[in-house]
Amino acid sequence: MTNSTSDALIQMINVDKFFGEFQALTKINLEVKRGEKIVVCGPSGSGKSTMIRCINRLEEHNAGQIIIDGKELTDQVKDIDAVRREVGMVFQSFNLFPHMTIVKNLMLAQQLVRKVPIAEAHKVAMHFLERVKIPDQADKYPVQLSGGQQQRVAIARALCMKPEIILFDEPTSALDPEMINEVLEVMTDLAKDGMTMICVTHEMGFARSVADRVIFMDAGEIVEEADPEEFFNNPKSARTKAFLSQILTH
């Protein structure tokens, strides 16, 4: 059942998700190949967060299948753990651990989940802090950093777990405008290195330059799916057109 002939790293097949009576996702079908970069956009409340949160089981889907690198997400704790080891996530509100220094934020899960010895965990943490260009902040607490710096730490924290896939849920939406670019730059670098990414964002410049595919969601459904060129220049559905005209006139 979990053996698919497809070379997809992520497969969502007819996924439904309900919150009580309310259907947040309807028959979602999505395939992401290794190394692909997907941008997801759509109006607020359209189910973007819910969709990517199902991929690492922060939300539990009610119907359909989700298969990550050949492993199907079921109720089994073992399967969930295995998937979470492969999938990193970056949140809109950073969600750093406020009571730990930056470097400890990056070391905790390495030590607890991957059982990396402390010296090695520290080395890995410093390596990725350098990669997001803030090694000098290692011993500070999250509140002492700007939003842009905190989000870069959050990305580094996800990278420390050596994930196959990183999910981004509006990573720049909570940032002051002058900090958006420093985060997008880090994400663009990651994309160049071949990381598989699903990114919920309304940064259309980023979508154009980085995405292999853009997905438009509305009312819990995937309405349109196309490469960026086509998506922006030649959107098919009326809903996509309406959405694009709204955000592009900002």
């Binding site: 999938v87 990193g88 750093l96 899960a109 924290r157």
Partner: peptide, 8 residues
Amino acid sequence: EAGSALGL
């Protein structure tokens, strides 16, 4: 949730 996502 960040803890869960990291596999804790």
